[in-house]
Design a protein around this nucleic acid. Structure first.
Lengths: 212, 212
DNA sequence: CAGGTTTCGTAACGATCGATATGAATAATT
DNA sequence: AATTATTCATATCGATCGTTACGAAACCTG
């Protein structure tokens, strides 16, 4: 499982597994798990089928590793925002603004892989759908954790419904992902995010639609 | 194209096309366009392949007719809400609350067919993805139209950004669709909708989270 | 250099995909 | 009754799906 493990011998790889995984990730990001065929992967990764299967076991394992890589390389903004030593409102603002940028980055597929990867799947790919759902639920839980922290510190009201609010914020981010896929620009997503932020207590509750 | 047109002769159909189309619609709703195979459709519609192809031309046409039927039979709440002779805030409230119910109806697939039907597709199904996007954009435009009407009538402020707000509301509904697919209950979706509504001017701007 | 190990390229596997050819069966029309 | 039109059921089409034998090639260890 570790890329750093040295083999005891044998013919060396003629390709960089991480670069190949990157190509696969972008393809899954664009077309989803099931709609991405081995033929497409073969062309994008510039590998033969046996090379893919030797390095990544099978299509499902390749997709799971693509998810891990996406989590590590593409959406670090989320953990950064939620763990930054800033007020709760600012943390959530960074989260939504980061999503606005990340979901509409030029040269990358629009939206979030955790959604585009497979929302409605065939029964055979149910495990993949479940895996993606797990990632989405983890995001929602992370938001809830940050909000509860804000409530504990007194930034948010006593009876603030952290979980319900996290479900709202996660829902907004999911919606942004779809809007991004439908062509929304980074600026449009920022405006959407700013509107969504207006319901969160803190930061003086400004209701205007002017730019930052 | 019309179900009411009488044939000049020939053997009569041994099935009800509308019931068969309903079965297909639910299957597409659950699994999306590409992940729904003819074998699955054959079983759910209780028809043989030639029956399906004779009545609906091909899989793509069947899906498009399923979209039309979904639009007519499942999401009438949207047009009702937006065309009802009620204040703007109430119209939008009905829209979001209707979505909360419709996206989590027992016995039906979670979420909205216009999203679950195919968000990320193979290149061969690009036309289907475009068609779904057109439906989503039409929804957003309908919301924008209702908001502009509210602005024109003086219910909303002079410079109210109807289109940007419509993009926010459409995004929230898209997010609700995904939350519904991830198992959110009608009540959870109503809470989400109520939170989202708080940013819309009118109705006294109440910020509490209590039930209706 | 011989033995062991891993990856290489070529070719093809069985399963499933969407879609159809074929001819019998059932209706309205003449 | 004969003709025409449409749907029926059976069987199967070629293409693509994910996956894998197979043997040669390229490295490390002894």
């Amino acid at each position: 499982m570790n890329n750093l493990e040295k083999p005891r011998g044998g013919r060396p790889r003629a390709f960089d597994p991480d670069r190949a995984l990157d190509a696969a990730m972008h393809l899954f990001w664009e077309h989803g798990y099931e709609a991405t065929s081995l033929a497409m992967l073969r062309e994008a990764m510039r590998l033969t089928p046996p090379q893919i299967y030797n390095a990544f076991t099978d299509k499902e394992t390749l997709f799971r590793k693509a998810l891990e890589r996406y989590h590590q390389t593409e959406i670090g903004f989320a953990l950064e925002a939620l763990s930054a030593p800033v007020p709760t409102h600012e943390a959530i603002r960074r989260l939504l603004m980061g999503a606005a940028e990340t979901y509409s980055r030029p040269g990358k597929p629009g939206g979030c892989l955790f959604i585009s990867g497979g929302l409605a799947t065939s029964p055979q790919a149910q495990a993949i759908a479940d895996e993606l759902k797990t990632y989405r639920k983890a995001s929602e839980a992370a938001i809830a954790g940050r909000l509860e922290k804000g409530r504990a510190s007194g930034e948010l009201p006593e009876g603030f419904p952290a979980e319900a609010f996290a479900k709202y914020l996660a829902g907004v981010m999911n919606g942004m992902s779809i809007q991004a896929r439908d062509g929304a620009s980074a600026e449009e997503l920022r405006v959407l995010a700013r509107t969504a932020l207006a319901v969160l207590p803190g930061e003086g509750q400004k209701q205007d639609q002017s730019k930052d």
